[in-house]
Computed example of a mutant assay.
Amino acid sequence: MDTRQHPLVPWLHLWHTPGLGPATFLLLTAAHGGPRAVLEAGPAAWREQGLDDAAVAFLEGPTPEGVLRDLEWAQDPQRHILTLEDPAYPPRLRAIAAAPPVLYVVGDPRVLHWPLLAVVGSRHPTPGGRDTAHAFSAHLARSGLVIASGLAQGIDAAAHGGALDGGGLTVAVTGTGPDRVYPAGHRDLARRIAAEGALVTELPVGTPVRREHFPRRNRILSGLAVGTLVVEAAHRSGSLITARHAAEQGREVFAIPGSIHNPMARGCHRLIRQGAKLVETADDILEELGPQIFIPREEEGPSPGNEADATAAPGEAPDAEHAALLEAMGHDPVAVDQLVERTGLTAGAVSSMLLLMELRGQVASLSGGRYVRLQPEHER
């Protein structure tokens, strides 16, 4: 492959330079008029811009092997390398501070221009949190939003899966090179995402897993999206970093509240105290984002989190187990072990459904681990 005049080479050579991050990259290209002009400026100019000896030696050298690997990787028609000057580069991401100068995309880069909602949360959620992420993502994807997340375990995987199961599109922003999948157990999920959306990273081919890459990944995730939804997050969760980036970027931040006894709800409660929009139903998000999204004309089914889901509006059938659990509750406060005995469900299944129904406003938790069924609004 003759790379001497390849338009991507100056971008990639500069991007591979050790110690040179997005902010310095943008300062250099602004000062000299583009990546090719930076490479032609010479050592004196590079040092004047604050580059150290290692960076200067790298820029003086021949086309790096890493650049050749990137170009070879991009020979596949489903793989793309986008620069800030490329019309295919997502405009919302271009608008953030220290936007990635280079993006590696597997799949269809056009979906990055559509309205995305970042859905994030704990890697170790409760069963109810996982169900909520899946249900919200399925409904929101059917309603015209592309669901974006980070391909991690827990809430991320549930969000991607919900979007795909709902027949929608999803985008994964990763913290490794575009040829790596982390965690490895999500290879099949990654293939589904690439086929029905896109995998995105700013990290070059061959970049392994490193802890410091994930905060960088989070700013891209929030930067691509019109808003960020936090489903479950501990008090010091990495998901709060994504939410902070979203707020700094002028994007909407949504949070789902939970039980005061659930440690996975503390991060969401902290965000709500700081001004995040409290979300009880998926339609709360659709109403807030309004004209930024396309809503299908045909009815796609009830929204997760809506009372109609489990109170059986005319023509709709509620989930059988949820309906059975509501029926078993009666009208008096009841403990989980009593519900297990009445329904024959496991304690884990009952607890998971109760948490989801609490978010939907169908039940309320009381002291002593008891729950009570709430009366639907049309019956009050």
Score class of each variant (00 low, 15 high):
E48F: 03
L71K: 09
R47H: 12
P62H: 12
E65Y: 07
A55E: 11
D53E: 15
L59M: 10
F58L: 05
L51C: 13
F58W: 15
E48A: 15
T63Y: 01
W46Y: 06
D53T: 15
L71V: 02
W73F: 11
A57P: 01
E65V: 12
A57K: 08
Q75T: 14
T63I: 13
A74N: 03
V67T: 05
A57S: 12
D52I: 07
L68W: 03
P64Q: 13
E60C: 14
L68D: 07
E72V: 09
A57W: 08
R47M: 08
P62M: 09
W73L: 07
W46S: 02
W73N: 07
Q75V: 11
A54R: 15
A54C: 05
E65W: 04
E65R: 14
G42A: 05
Q49H: 12
G61R: 07
E60V: 04
R47Q: 14
V67W: 00
G66A: 09
D53R: 09
A57V: 05
D53K: 03
G61N: 05
V56G: 04
A57H: 13
G61A: 15
A54M: 12
R47V: 10
T63G: 08
A74M: 06
Q75F: 00
T63W: 00
G66R: 04
G50A: 13
Q75G: 02
L71M: 04
Q75H: 06
A74V: 03
L51I: 14
L51T: 09
A44S: 06
G66I: 01
A45H: 08
D70W: 01
P43S: 14
L59W: 07
D70M: 03
F58G: 00
G42V: 06
P62Y: 08
E72P: 00
G42K: 10
V56R: 07
E65S: 11
Q75R: 13
E72Q: 11
R69P: 02
V56D: 02
A57R: 15
G61D: 12
Q49W: 08
D70T: 01
A55C: 11
V67G: 00
D70Q: 01
D53M: 11
P43V: 00
E48L: 10
E72L: 11
R69V: 00
F58Y: 15
E60F: 10
L71Q: 10
G61M: 09
Q49V: 02
R47G: 15
E65L: 12
E72F: 01
T63F: 01
L68C: 09
P62D: 15
E48T: 15
R47T: 06
E48Q: 15
G61W: 08
